[in-house]
Design a protein around this nucleic acid. Structure first.
Lengths: 348, 348
DNA sequence: GTTGGCACTCGTAAGAGATGAGTGCTAAAG
DNA sequence: CTTTAGCACTCATCTCTTACGAGTGCCAAC
């Protein structure tokens, strides 16, 4: 049986109509489409063929047809016409990102929120740190009699700081000593290496001062971990409530996607560009009724994170995929600007 | 009509049973309570009296009774026996907070999450900064060729930092100049004063260098604003979905409570201790079907924030009020420890 | 004051049609 | 061989009715 042009047009029409209305699509409705214009009976024959081919499903005998997961897959991969963003939409997104010297973490969480707002789906934004990234430099800055600021500068340009309050007065001598000690032990090591055990072994080397400096050592550990773990932000979870597909599963899905250890591995290992996981294609069985649309973004050439959408299988792919693509590109550009200055200077 | 002892016992039983089951309570059910032990008919007479007094409501003629808002109020204010926390529960909460040198912001967001987990309600944690708090000191620390860390230390002990990436190389001379300049202009001013206009006027004073240093000036403004605005964390929004009271209103409520500008004023102006707002007592009409239980916490003697629970009017007040009280106390203690060291040293 | 009895109310669950959207199949027309 | 009209059939959904039962208010008796 050939998957001819008319079958393609019919499948497209079914997918698009179902996405729009959420109701199974019948032969009569389709016969009114100008690009089809054959009688309902003919369409029924074609639909029976598409059903045979596994592209359509039937909720029950007397209902219309609904795309199967394979139907969606075929539609997305070869039939769909992506709706490019209008200039207005681009401007709107650009305006969101129009901040100078943004905090990268905030940028990410704002992106998740904005993406959710724009798309009506739950949105996730996540960064990953490659395992080759090392600690480049550690600094300790007295800020107050007993307060210091710890800084960890990683080789990928990420800088994190933490205010540490100590139980003793810190003078420049102490700060200098600790700075040298910390850099001797930590600088050059990959973030991945800096485990709790590693930190403990470093702490031991401080001998009798180990107790005194422990808060700082732990602070460094926490900062390294923070950089290595990256971020995970989820925005617009509550958007899922607007789809009746989730009427009884909303709580379960919302809990699931809130946890990085659940969703992270699923969305963090994709090729560049936009990837779509439709329903049962997801490795998590709880997501069988949902689709994920994910896009990687990168700082310069270095892939560094993922943004994604979570919504019902019946989502408007033709609109959302270009949107997500634009967001990812924009986010990458902005992060590149943020991080570029350092590398620029280092090379120069 | 006297609100005698038996009426009180009946009202208590109705409130407690309704909280537990969510079903209107009938006279037969009540007659089986050992502390009541009169016939259903007698109870019906009493219930009619309680209805007259405005303490009970009837969903419809042939249903049992449900507490009115006044009924809940009476129960909470004078009838309820608070269930003190068990040692196990206290230990569980203590364990959550058992971290050394916690980041105050993280402490707050973790508290909101934990509180939600413990209580099954949505939980909010919020800090407010009194308007008399001033900028005590500003510091700028070169971290890298073109990267500096800005520090704002406020008079209430709060320290915030921000990594700023600049377009030029920063040496100690530049850093010293800017540090002096910034402290001359900002230190001593209240955080409240430091508005966008204020910052602009400061920037102008830099003359030809205004453009170069603007990112730093803006950074200071942002940090001051961050300290002054305080935090607002909401945890466990999705818990509301478990109550069928919210089956159709969940989205609306979740949106509402996510916004500090909506919920903040409502929960931020209460006396010390635990305050309960029952349903329509809330100034926000959308919360007419919800109750808020809020508690203030303080650093030392200084009131500094609020934690609260949002849930259906039918919530287990006798358990939740002591829980919230314990959380608030614990949170205050921990924050006091975190901030005390500085003040301790400054006075010494 | 308390209680048993009883008629009454009213929400809910269950069952019976009626409706109608949509189908598959067949046979005739193109 | 493809397309189409016709027709019987399926099945979710809606409405209407009925039955049920939990709970009430009131009254008379204890």
């Amino acid at each position: 049986m050939r998957f001819d042009d008319r079958k393609k047009r019919i499948l497209s029409a079914i997918v698009e109509t179902y996405i729009r209305t959420g109701e199974p699509v019948g032969s009569k409705t389709l016969s009114e489409f100008p690009e089809i214009s054959v009688s309902p009976a003919t369409i029924r024959n074609e639909m029976a063929a598409l059903f045979e081919m596994g592209l359509l499903e039937q909720p029950h005998t007397s209902a219309g047809r609904v795309p199967s997961h394979l139907g969606y897959r075929t539609y997305i991969d070869s039939l769909m016409m992506a709706k490019p963003l209008t200039e207005d939409e681009k401007d709107g997104i650009d305006a969101l990102f129009n901040i100078s010297d943004p905090d990268p973490d905030k940028l990410l969480s704002d992106s998740a929120e904005a993406l959710a707002e724009y798309t009506g789906c739950a949105a996730v934004a996540m960064t990953t740190t490659p395992s080759y990234v090392t600690v480049e430099h550690i600094d300790i800055v007295p800020a107050d009699a007993t307060t210091v600021v710890l800084l960890v500068i990683a080789s990928n340009g990420v800088v994190k700081s933490k205010v540490c309050r100590l139980g003793f007065r810190v003078n420049t001598g102490i700060a200098d000593f600790f700075r040298k000690f910390a850099n001797d032990r930590f600088a050059g090591h990959t973030l991945k290496e800096i485990s709790a055990e590693f930190v403990k072994s470093v702490s031991v080397q401080l001998g009798e001062y180990s107790g005194v400096f422990n808060p700082l050592i732990v602070g460094i550990y926490e900062l390294c971990k923070e950089v290595y773990d990256g971020q995970y932000y989820l925005g617009g979870r509550e958007k899922l409530l607007t789809y009746n597909e989730y009427s009884d599963r909303a709580l379960e899905i919302m809990k699931l996607i809130s946890k990085r250890d659940k969703l992270g591995p699923v969305i963090g290992n994709n090729p560049t560009g936009v990837t779509v996981f439709i329903g049962k294609e997801n490795s998590l069985s709880q997501l069988a009724g949902s689709s994920l649309v994910v896009a990687r973004f990168s700082i310069g050439e270095n892939d560094c994170g993922t943004i994604g959408l979570i919504g019902p299988v019946r989502m408007d792919y033709s609109r959302l995929i270009p949107h997500l693509e634009y967001f990812a590109e924009k986010l990458g550009t902005l992060l590149s600007i943020t991080y570029q200055r350092i590398t620029g200077d280092e090379n120069g």
